[in-house]
Amino acid sequence: MTEEGKSLFARRLKEARQAKSLTQAELSKATGIAQPDISLIERGQANITLDTMERLASAVGVPLHRLLTP
């Protein structure tokens, strides 16, 4: 994924998480992804798999394509 793509996913994920009033810790519990890793993802500093993106999108209730489409 390009840096631009990571940045877009990161920003949209954070916005979706906050819109659901979820903390990173709560998202961590819902997905099984460690909170420090979620922090890295939301800052666009992590390389993540498609499976991880799908788990995160599902947990915040947003279709994955909406987190990736400009």
Rank of each mutant, 00 (worst) to 15 (best):
L50E: 03
A34I: 06
L68P: 04
Q35L: 04
M53T: 01
L68N: 01
H65S: 10
L56I: 08
A30D: 04
L22H: 03
R43Q: 15
T52P: 01
Q45S: 12
Q45W: 03
I48S: 05
G5L: 12
V62L: 00
R17I: 04
I48D: 06
A25G: 09
L27V: 00
S58R: 11
I48W: 01
T52Y: 05
T52H: 05
A57I: 07
D37Q: 15
A16T: 02
P70S: 11
L68A: 02
V60N: 00
T23L: 09
Q35H: 08
S39A: 15
A57R: 00
L22K: 00
P36E: 09
N47T: 13
V60P: 01
A16I: 04
H65K: 12
N47D: 13
Q35D: 10
G32I: 00
H65W: 15
A59Q: 02
L67S: 05
S39G: 15
L22F: 09
S7G: 10
S7M: 13
T2Q: 10
L13D: 00
G44W: 04
I48N: 06
E3C: 01
K6P: 05
R11H: 10
L8R: 12
D51Q: 11
L56M: 07
S21E: 14
L8T: 12
P63A: 05
T52E: 10
A19C: 02
L56F: 03
A46E: 09
S39P: 08
G5H: 10
Q45T: 03
I33M: 06
L8K: 09
V60Q: 01
N47S: 13
L27I: 00
T31C: 07
Q24R: 15
G32W: 02
